[in-house]
Design a protein around this nucleic acid. Structure first.
Length: 278
DNA sequence: AAAACCGCCTGTCGGC
DNA sequence: TGCCGACAGGCGGTTT
């Protein structure tokens, strides 16, 4: 699913091809993708204008639009934002919205499960987008230090896996990278946040950074639906250590990997490397 | 505060 | 072979 590395890869791939091209047509085929605008308002505000920049916060993509607006996209589970230089290529079956730059190509939002969202707001006015407004620290920023992570964990009895998935604490981790980070740091997903030692917190901090950076370098993880902005698969699925590998041998110690529901999510771990009771 | 659950969707897969 | 329920999981919301 699109988590931080996938969304960042989409951003980097779209950046060179979607800026400074006037929108000649905007079509919305799945009305409910729009959160706070009617299709008419949405089209009126975008037509004739260009995207000036494309940034990311957590799992949100933010297109800045001429005239003081921002187009905020979230891919949720199966959303794709793909640029087609040849607009005559037929639309994919589940195409929710199309942004046409005329002869200069087309940006399409494709989404099998239709959970993805589009918002159009005045620049910086994110109050109506609750998930964006309350987003926590960027894990690849300088602000996210071992000391910061220590503060997040201290005095909390929440399971560490649940905390990693809490977007108001750390922005951009999803199920795959939370599991991979906990494995690299050798911490059981059900450990209570305040039970981690300083050494473990440092390991976890480093693991989150390493895993996210390596995943970005590999254009993200394509298990099924995710594609880059050019429609290509990522390759980090080939480098996953434990996600989706229940019953296989731990790459570190050879013990059979397990999975279990933690905080409502399937969580993968090695019962030997990641001890429940340290 | 935290956890459990639901709704939103569709495609895939395992079991019968 | 075909049908059916379980499952996948991001996020907002409600309830416990």
């Amino acid at each position: 699913m699109p988590e931080l590395p996938e969304v960042e890869t989409v951003r980097r791939s779209l950046l060179p091809v979607v800026l400074h091209k006037p929108l000649e047509a905007v079509e919305v085929h799945t009305t409910r993708i729009l959160q706070h605008k009617t299709v008419e308002e949405f089209r009126e505000l975008l037509l004739g204008r260009s995207f000036l920049d494309l940034s990311r916060r957590g799992k949100y993509l933010i297109f800045s639009v001429e005239g003081g607006w921002e187009l905020v996209a979230h891919l949720r589970m199966t959303g794709r934002l793909i640029f087609y230089s040849n607009p005559s290529i037929p639309w994919a079956k589940h195409t929710s919205a199309v942004f046409s730059f005329g002869s200069q190509g087309e940006l399409r939002f494709e989404d099998v499960r239709k959970f993805g969202t589009l918002d159009l707001v005045p620049t910086g006015q994110y109050e109506t987008i609750k998930g964006l407004h309350t987003l926590g620290v960027e894990p690849l920023s300088e602000e996210f230090s071992p000391e910061y992570l220590l503060k997040l964990l201290t005095g909390r009895r929440i399971k560490v896996k649940a905390l990693l998935l809490d977007q108001t604490k750390i922005a951009g981790l999803g199920n795959i990278y939370a599991d991979e980070s906990l494995f690299q740091a050798a911490i059981h997903p059900q450990r209570s946040a305040d039970s981690l030692t300083e050494e473990e917190i440092e390991r976890l901090h480093g693991a989150i950074r390493d895993v996210l950076e390596l995943a970005i370098a590999n254009q993200g993880t394509t298990l099924r639906d995710y594609r880059t902005g050019f429609g290509q698969e990522g390759s980090f699925q080939n480098r996953l250590q434990i996600y989706g590998k229940k019953g296989e041998e731990c790459p570190r110690c050879g013990v059979k990997l397990e999975h279990r529901k933690v905080a409502g999510r399937t969580s993968h771990f090695c019962p030997a490397c990641q001890r429940e009771q340290p």
